[in-house]
C-alpha cells in the first residue's frame, strides 16, 4: 500500500528514452555478430578480393565502435542506480 510499483506501466518521457537506449545497447552485439558473419555468405563461387573484404570489415567495425560510443556515452550519464532497471 502506497508503495511505488517496481515496474510502472507508464514512464515519463526521459526514463522511457533511457530504457530504449538500454535496449539499443542490448541489440548492439547482435548487430555486430550479424555484420561480422556476413563474410560467411561470400563463400564458394564468388571471388571476393582480400582488399575489399578488409575495407568492409574495418568499415563495419568502425561503424559499430561509433554506435557503441554513442550509446555508452548516453548510458554513462545516467546515475548508476538506474542501471539496474529492467526494460
Amino acid at each position: 500500500m502506497g508503495r511505488k510499483p517496481e515496474n510502472p506501466l507508464f514512464l515519463e518521457r526521459q526514463r522511457y528514452r533511457m530504457r530504449r537506449i538500454m535496449d539499443a545497447a542490448r541489440f548492439a552485439p547482435v548487430l555486430a555478430a550479424f555484420l561480422f558473419l556476413i563474410p560467411l555468405m561470400w563463400g564458394a563461387g564468388q571471388e571476393v578480393p582480400t582488399a575489399s573484404a578488409l575495407i568492409y570489415i574495418f568499415g563495419a567495425w568502425a561503424g559499430l565502435i561509433a554506435v557503441t560510443a554513442f550509446l555508452s556515452h548516453k548510458l554513462r550519464k545516467m546515475p548508476r542506480d538506474n542501471w539496474q532497471e529492467r526494460p
Binding site: M22, P29, V30, L75
Partner: peptide, 15 residues
Amino acid sequence: LGPSIVMIGWWWTLR
C-alpha cells in the same frame, strides 16, 4: 572481432 562483440555487448554480460 570476437572480443569486440563481447565488449560491444557489455550491457549483457560484462556489466
